[in-house]
Every structure is written in C-alpha cells, then in structure tokens.
Design a protein around this nucleic acid. Structure first.
Lengths: 220, 220
DNA sequence: CCATGTCCTTGATCACGATCAAGAAATTTT
DNA sequence: AAAATTTCTTGATCGTGATCAAGGACATGG
C-alpha cells in the first residue's frame, strides 16, 4: 500500500477492508454477470481469471497470487465480465468499491494507488497481447515460466523452483496453445536441460537459457 | 462526460483541458519512454497504439477514434510504455494528469468516470486476448470488422460501409496474423458475398453472415 | 504526367502447432 | 487400499496460416 500517508490516513485505510473471505479450491470468488460491489486483495492462495462467451469459448486472462487485486473488470458496467476461480484454498480481503471511492477522495495517496493498479493491469495485458500476437510456442512458455518465477521471487520464494498451481490445459488457454503443446514444450525444455519437470514441480536449471529463448525474436 | 454534475462542477471540468494538439499523420502523440504527464481525448482523427520490445518485436494493441482516451498506460510508472501514432491528421485534447487527480477528488462524477474508462480498457483487452488466444483467422477478421463498424456507427457513420485507416500489416499485427492472411481473408469474404473490398473501402453486404462466422465457435 | 515507392493481392510451398489417439502417472473418491 | 477420475505425456497425422515470391494497383512527389 502507499507510503506517504499520515497516521490518521492509515487509520482510515484500515476501514477499507470490511470482510475476509475464504474461497475453497475450485470455487468462484465471483462470476460473469455477478453484481460488482468490491475489489479483492489476495491474502493467500492462487486464482485464475477467465472470460467466457455464450458460444462456449473460454480464455484464461491471468493467474493471480498474494498481494494482487482482482475485480477491476466489474467497475465499468457494475457487473463482473469474467470469472475468478480459486486454484487452491485462498483468502481474500473484500474492499467495498464505494468505500474505495470515498476514501480516495480524502486520501490522495490511495487515489494514486488505485489508478496505478488499474494502469498496471492495462500494461500487463499489453504484454499478454504481445505474447499471444507475436510469439511462437517456445517463447510463450518460456515467458510464462519466467513471469511466474519473477513474481514468486518477489514474494520470497525460490528463484529456481516453483510449483504450478494450474493444469496444462489452463496454461494452454492462457498462452493460446493446446495442453499437448504446453506439455511437449516442457519436455523439450527438459531435454535441453533448461528445466526439470516432474508433474507440477518445475526446477529451473538455466534461467539465462529461458531468457534467451524469449529474446530470440523469431516472432512472426 | 458524466451526467450528474452541477453547473459549478461543469465549470471546473472545463479547466481539465489545457491544450489542444494537432498531430500529423504518421507522427507520434507519445512514445515509449516519454514522461507521462497527461491523458488525451481524441477530438478527431484516428490512432494506433503499439508495444515494442528491444528485440524488435511489435504488437498493435488497439485502434482509437474520436471520443476515446489515450495514455492510461503511463500512469503506473510515470513513463509511457507504448507508442501512440496518428494514422491520419488528428486533434486531441490534452488533460494534465495532476489536474485530473485534483478534480476527481472534488467532483465524484469525474472520479467514477475515470475509473470506468480504465475498467473499460481492461475489459476491451480481455476481448482482444480472447480473440488472439482462441479464434481462427476468419473469426478474427470478422470480429475486427464488426467491432470497427459498431464503433463508427455509434459515431453516426454508416453501418454498412467503412474506410480502413490502417494498412493490412497493421491489421495483421493487431490480430496476430500476417498481412497476407488478412488480405486473403478479405478476398474470401468478398467471394462469399459477405463484403465488398476495394483497397481500404469496405462495404458490408451481409453483417449477419459476419456475425455467424464469429459465433461459429470452432475455436481451438 | 510520369516516376517512385508503398501497399495490396495472389500463388506455391512449408512448418508449426492442432488434432486424434492411447497409455501412464497422479490425485481423489469410495 | 483399491477404484475411479483427472491430468499428463508421447506418438502419428493433418491443416491452418506463415513464408517466400512476383506482379499489380494506388498514392505521393518531382
């Protein structure tokens, strides 16, 4: 949260979170069509968000972990436009949107913070568009692993090891690939001694090598 | 702009726009790395935004027309992370970001408005991710045409005719396709009497037909 | 008006990743 | 602990869209 806030501000910010909610693995935090009332900060656990269409298409739009904010999609129309599903048992802080708006007016640091969170999400999605629009399968998978790694590292986890919380199919949906291609790409990386894969446990043997794959720029 | 504002508020909102800028075709409104200072409302003209990487990759992230807001990508880091280029001579209203923040605190309707604009952009990008991640070439092109058409129609233009302001290559970059595939898809649609294409002039003969292609859900 | 350069179209071929298929390994349920 | 289900891996084949290539249509400027 913001840094340049007074003690009085801090006291106010404490009133932002009204409820903590526990979300069981496999269940939704919110779903498309739900009335939008609050933003959610993840305390623990791991989520995916996805958009779905009436004709059955589905696209995973992101994976979220502790400290990240969910629900921004609902602001524009007062309805959620995507689903947020817990990939493991999770806990979130519910922050009523009305209260966020009210407090933002009184605490400029919060106002700026909220704007930055939304802007960050827009920039993140630009990155995903770049990935989906111009990278080949190997580059997408390497990019995905490095991104997860970097975010986990920022949270104090190992830089060289991670446990995937999602299936190959969910990774594939996110990356615009089939689950088979994701699996094969993992296997190829393992053959090349870039990583070790055992189911959902991934160990990074050659991070530089993965970065080199992303930067290869053999894109279309 | 918002509706539930008093006359006094309106007066304040008038001070939001400090400058009007004319942008020549082919020149940038802002570029990656530029210091972020303002948001821009398009008065007239047509823009593309794109992200670029050091290794030469490029991805068009959107096409913007009159009434739409540009620059949101810069809020998070005080630097712009993408380029905005005029595809035809254009005019924009410059709205200093500081002033937006100040006024938002005093005029709740503006605060809500700004949040909705950012949320709308996030939702729009979800749609693009769905397109890039799960649609085949025909579906992408049909979806692109229908989206442009709908936005132009909302601005009082014909529902059945449009002039493309961008090249096949720019369309391709946006849709994650090569320019050849875009061209061939246009030709195929023309053969099937869904559209007529003469260079950048497109006439819609069968809008329902295009919608049927998008809804076909033969996605991967 | 012609020359130059950009943009677009169309054809031929190729390759990447999808699809279909089957079996193995985990995980969950009973 | 065994059974059932889900998830993952690997192989074989296919198809869409990329790539390479060449010619034609416009637009722009001298």
């Amino acid at each position: 949260m913001p840094v340049d806030v007074t003690a009085a501000d801090m006291e106010r910010l404490d009133t932002l979170v009204t409820t903590r909610r526990r979300i069981r693995r496999g269940t939704p935090l919110y779903s498309r069509g739900d009335r939008f009332t609050a933003l959610y900060a993840i305390r623990s656990g791991f989520f995916k968000t996805r958009v779905t269409t009436n004709d059955g298409r589905e696209q995973v739009t992101g994976f979220q972990m502790a400290g990240e904010i969910m629900g921004l999609d609902g602001i524009v129309s007062d309805l959620h436009t995507c689903d947020a599903l817990a990939l493991e048992d999770a806990e979130v802080c519910e922050m009523p949107y009305e209260r966020i708006e009210d407090l933002s007016r009184e605490v400029p640091a919060l106002q700026t913070h909220v704007h930055k969170i939304m802007s960050r999400e827009i920039v993140r999605e630009h990155g995903v568009m770049l990935l989906l629009g111009s990278m080949r399968a190997e580059e997408r998978v390497a990019s995905f692993l490095l991104n997860l790694l970097q975010r986990l590292h920022a949270r104090g986890f190992s830089e060289a090891e991670l446990v995937l919380r999602m299936t190959r199919e969910e990774i594939g949906s996110y990356l615009g690939l089939t689950l088979e291609t994701v699996s094969r790409t993992f296997s190829r990386f393992a053959e090349e001694r870039l990583i070790e894969v055992r189911h959902r446990h991934v160990r990074i043997l050659d991070g530089k090598g993965l970065e080199a794959i992303v930067a290869s720029a053999n894109g279309r």
